Computed example of a mutant assay.
Amino acid sequence: MATYTPPRPFFLPDAHLPNSASTPWTCRTCTGTWPCETAEQYLTAGRCQCGSPMYWEKSNPRRWHTGPRCYSHADQMAALAEELHQYHQAHPHYPPPRPDPPRRRRRQRPPYAHTPSGPGDIRPGTWLWVKPGGLHPAWGDIHRLAMLTHLDRSYCEVWLDDTTVHRVRPHLLILERTPVVNAARAAGVTSLVCGGSGPAPRPLLPQWRWLGWTLAEHIEHLGADPEPQAVPVQEGLFAA
C-alpha cells in the first residue's frame, strides 16, 4: 500500500526561517547553519553590493542579508530622496501659469439671506457653487462658493468672498445644500437621501431632487422669466 506524501509547501516554512541571534545564522529547526537543506529549495542565492551573501525567496518578495547591515534606514531614505530630487531636476513639471485677474467690480457682502424651500425658490442671498469654467481662469479651475445677487436667464450675478462680483451663466451654478439640509432637519425632516446620511453620496429622494438642479433648471421650472431685481447700490464703498 502506497504511503501518502504531503505536497511540498509553496512558501518557505516558518520552521526553517533563520535565527539571527548568533553568528553565523542558524536554522530555527535544524542544528546547522542557515540556509539549511530544506530552505535552499526555496531560495535564490546572491550577493549584496557590499559583498555580503543575500538570499531571495523564489515565490515571495522576502530577502535576507546575512552579513552586517551595509546601510541604515536613514541612509536608505537619504538615497531615495536624492534619487527623487535628481529625477525631478531632469524632468521638471510646472503647473500652467495662472493669468493675471482682470478688473472686476468689488462690493461689500450683500445683506441678503435666503434659503430655498422648493424648486424654483431662488432669490438673492442664495448660496451657490460656481462650477469650473464659470469664472475667469484667474480665479482657478475649481468650484467656488458664491452668493447670488441677481437672477437672469442669460447671466446671473454672484458675489465671492474676495468681494469681487462676477457674471456667470445659470447652467454653471448649483445650490449649496448645507443651508437647505440644516433648515430641513430643524423642521423635523431627516430623510433627505435614500439610506440615511453618511460620507458616501447617495441618490436624493424624488421630492428633494431639486437640490441637484442647476440654476438654469430652476429658472426653467418657473416657466416664465424671473422678475427683474434691483442691483444694490454699494459700489461707492470700495475703490474701483
Rank of each mutant, 00 (worst) to 15 (best):
P179K: 06
R185P: 00
I174L: 15
V181C: 02
A224L: 14
G195M: 07
G195F: 07
T190M: 14
T214S: 15
L222R: 15
P201G: 04
R202M: 02
R177Y: 10
L175G: 07
G223N: 14
E220W: 12
G188T: 13
P201M: 01
A184F: 00
L172S: 09
V193N: 01
A224V: 15
P179I: 07
L205T: 15
A224H: 15
S197N: 10
P201N: 01
L172I: 09
P201K: 00
L211N: 05
G212E: 15
R177D: 08
H221P: 06
L192R: 05
E220V: 14
V189T: 08
G196P: 09
R202V: 04
S197L: 03
L211D: 02
H221N: 13
E217R: 15
V181T: 07
W210E: 08
V193A: 02
L205P: 05
I219D: 10
A183K: 08
L204W: 15
W213N: 06
A216S: 10
C194F: 00
L175I: 10
L192H: 03
I219T: 03
L173W: 12
S191I: 01
C194I: 11
W208D: 08
I174R: 12
H218A: 10
A224C: 14
H171C: 12
H221A: 13
A183C: 05
W210T: 08
S191N: 06
L215F: 14
P201Y: 00
H218S: 11
A184L: 15
L205W: 13
L173S: 11
G196D: 03
Q207P: 10
P203R: 09
A200E: 04
V193K: 00
S197W: 00
L204D: 05
R185T: 09
E176Y: 02
A187T: 11
V189Y: 05
P179Y: 06
C194R: 01
L173M: 11
A224P: 07
L173G: 11
L204T: 06
G195N: 07
L175M: 11
H171E: 15
I174S: 09
A216T: 08
T178W: 06
L172Q: 15
A184E: 12
A184I: 02
A216Y: 01
V189K: 04
L173N: 13
P206E: 06
N182D: 11
L173E: 09
